[in-house]
């Protein structure tokens, strides 16, 4: 297990290194400079600004400096806000994004398990049909459409929740719902399929032959076996939430990293884009590592062999 963990952490670092390298040189391909948005400046002013951003050095030096900085969490200075380091910009904004993202994940997955399990238990009845329709709708309606609808009907019309900005928990409800819909739908579908499969397996037949009641069979045998594989889709769900948050944070004017990403893209603020790319990649890698380890802990078949596949 320790050996496996060490290997995985090594791969995580390697992946991040490749991500940083590739993004850095991709960004160098871009035409913009910190001066693109500025008015006409004198030669000496330009030289000064180039020095400030370290752009006067050869590219390989810039790269090494950036790499050294990134290890310490320093991603350079923003083009857009020339006095702000990217790391400060991001660290002040990551809190709201994490809160909404985690809430959406927890709410979505827990409700999804419930909906999926109920659907599988009542397979081919109207209950099953209803839960299937709910989950397929959740997958088909983009989060930004849902966000606008929630904002208008629950926020503006019904006055139940604030329509935008960032304050206490009440401000997180609508964005959480908008972002949680897809994880809910995806996990409901996944759990239903998995559980239908498990329910037709031989060991469920044996459990019935032991005289277990219907609920006993579900609770003791079917649920655990169908929930373990759910861990594998947590990574993709995290991606989904990150993607969705870019638009949803914009709609609800939440000062998170998703909103910052869109802003930076529209203003060609490359250092910030790079920093965000690395942050996103880092978070995703951690989620994937975490889910892999969790899978190894809960599934006895993997626990002892110490292999991931």
């Amino acid at each position: 297990m320790a050996k496996y963990l060490a290997k995985r952490i090594f791969y995580l670092i390697l992946t991040l290194f490749i991500v940083i390298t590739v993004t850095f040189f991709l960004m160098k391909l871009l035409p913009g400079t910190p001066l693109t948005n500025q008015a006409k400046l004198s030669q000496s002013q330009i030289a000064l600004i180039y020095k400030q951003y370290g752009l006067d050095k050869p590219e390989w030096q810039q790269y090494l400096l950036y790499l050294a900085g990134a290890v310490k969490g320093d991603f350079g200075t923003s083009f857009q806000f020339s006095d702000q380091p990217v790391s400060y910009l991001l660290s002040s904004r990551i809190g709201p994004s994490l809160q909404i993202g985690l809430q959406a994940m927890v709410v979505g997955v827990v409700l999804g398990i419930l909906v999926g399990a109920i659907g599988a238990m009542r397979q081919n009845t109207w209950v099953d049909t209803t839960t299937t329709v709910v989950s397929i709708l959740g997958i088909s309606i983009p989060s930004f459409v849902l966000a606008v609808l929630l904002q208008y009907y629950l926020g503006l019309k019904a006055q139940l929740f604030p329509i935008a900005e960032w304050g206490g928990f009440i401000y997180t409800v609508l964005p959480t719902l908008a972002l949680g819909a897809t994880p809910l739908a995806e996990s409901a579908r996944f759990v239903r399929t998995e559980m239908v499969d498990v329910l037709s397996s031989d060991y469920i037949e044996l459990a019935k032959a032991k005289g277990l009641s219907r609920m006993g069979v579900i609770y003791h045998h079917a649920l655990r076996n169908s929930l373990i594989p759910l861990i594998t889709i947590v990574g993709p769900l995290a991606v989904n939430i990150m993607t969705g948050s870019m638009v949803v944070e914009n709609i609800f004017s939440i000062p998170g990293i998703g909103e910052q990403f869109v802003k930076s893209v529209l203003t060609n603020d490359y250092p910030t884009i790079m920093g965000l790319t690395i942050i996103y990649s880092f978070m995703l890698c951690v989620v994937l590592l975490f889910t892999d380890i969790l899978y190894g802990i809960v599934d006895p078949r993997i626990r002892l062999t110490g292999k991931a596949n």
Partner: peptide
């Protein structure tokens, strides 16, 4: 593939479109 998957797709798409 794992490395490509370690960045959210939309981020990669945005970077490519910028380029």
């Amino acid at each position: 593939i794992e490395i490509i998957l370690s960045i959210p797709n939309l981020v990669v798409i945005v970077l490519l479109i910028l380029i």
